[in-house]
């Protein structure tokens, strides 16, 4: 059955179908030409084609039937050390029976693996290099332990430039028989922020409103698909209403199931749109960064983000205080 989600339907099957990340694709082609490759680390933001490149690489290396020699695991779901010790090891140690002398194991979201699991993985990678090559995909290469990084060829995937996203989306619209206004297309490209998955999802959602897609349709989708309550939450905090801000936060975490790090990311980009003094923008960024760090340390999402909101609320009050003091001094002088 043909894929009904367009991100899957239009996912490139071969390296030739990938129209961006040209340098990376060129280097991967070399691997195929020589029928060999090192362990690889694909790093980059979401929706830039890391998993797709890994799948295409396997396809081009092994041909269409690559199930036996290819395995894809998601480290966020199976990040325990046990999976590394059992599933991964089982797969890696058995020699490939195909013409290509090694198998490929893709580990998605590898930066979500625990440190222990990464160390276990490192040994497995080393021991079974002859029979299996690993492709680790991650958002931040820095979250992968040094010993693994040094065993991998690093590929940095960059956010897709606007014209590439434009090309891809225009192509899909044509194939799906959609009419899309230039403004509509442009607005999807804007909200995509270099993330093609996001762009395609927005396009597909918008197509459920009408076969001809306008700018309004896109904004209607975005308003829902990406809950902008982050903004509301931030505004409550900045106005000093912590309790309301925490309610919004809970809705985001529990109702929408948005992850803490995603909220941090959105907060970060909101900072530049807020109507606040420039100096405060910078202190805000530091506070957000600190929260991000604490989350990375394993802090609880609700507790850490609440503490951030409380901090914002407290700063507001102290600034209000300083303004008032200022006014009072003036009064006295008058």
């Amino acid at each position: 059955m043909e894929a009904a989600l367009w991100t899957e339907k239009y996912r490139p099957k071969t390296l030739d179908e990938i129209q961006d990340q040209e340098e990376i694709v060129a280097r991967l082609r070399e691997f195929i030409k020589n029928a060999t490759m090192p362990h690889c680390l694909f790093a980059g933001p979401p929706g830039t084609g890391k998993t797709t490149a890994a799948l295409c690489l396997a396809h081009d290396l092994f041909g269409r039937r690559f199930q036996d020699v290819f395995m894809e695991l998601n480290a966020s779901d199976e990040r325990g050390i046990d999976v590394i010790r059992t599933t991964v090891k089982e797969f890696a140690r058995m020699a490939s029976l195909s013409a290509v002398p090694f198998k490929i194991l893709v580990l998605d979201e590898a930066d979500n693996m625990t440190g222990d699991a990464q160390h276990a993985l490192r040994r497995t990678m080393e021991k079974y290099t002859d029979t299996c090559r690993f492709v680790l995909c991650c958002n931040y290469s820095g979250r992968i332990i040094e010993p693994i990084q040094s065993r991998c060829a690093l590929f940095r995937f960059t956010p897709l430039p606007e014209e590439k996203i434009l090309d891809y989306l225009g192509d899909i619209a044509k194939k799906e028989g959609l009419k899309i206004s230039p403004d509509g297309l442009k607005s999807i490209v804007e909200v995509s922020e270099g993330d093609l998955r996001k762009g395609i999802n927005t396009l597909q959602a918008a197509s459920s409103l009408s076969r001809s897609i306008s700018e309004e349709a896109v904004y209607q989708v975005v308003g829902r698909a990406k809950p902008t309550d982050v903004q509301a939450m931030l505004n409550h905090a900045i106005k000093g209403d912590f309790i309301k801000a925490r309610e919004e936060l809970r809705a985001l975490l529990v109702k929408y199931g948005i992850s803490g790090s995603e909220i941090v990311r959105q907060l970060h980009s909101e900072v530049f749109r807020l109507a606040i003094p420039e100096r405060r923008r910078v202190s805000l960024i530091e506070a957000i960064g600190e929260t991000d760090f604490r989350l990375a340390q394993g802090g609880d999402e609700e507790v850490q983000l609440s503490a951030l909101l409380a901090k914002l609320a407290a700063e507001t009050s102290s600034q209000k205080g300083s303004i008032e003091t200022h006014v009072r001094t003036l009064d006295r002088e008058a």
Binding site: L5, P46, E72, N74, D77, D108, E109
Partner: peptide, 9 residues
């Protein structure tokens, strides 16, 4: 599993 992502994402 259909879209090559973790369950949460």
């Amino acid at each position: 599993s259909k879209c090559h992502l973790s369950s949460r994402r």
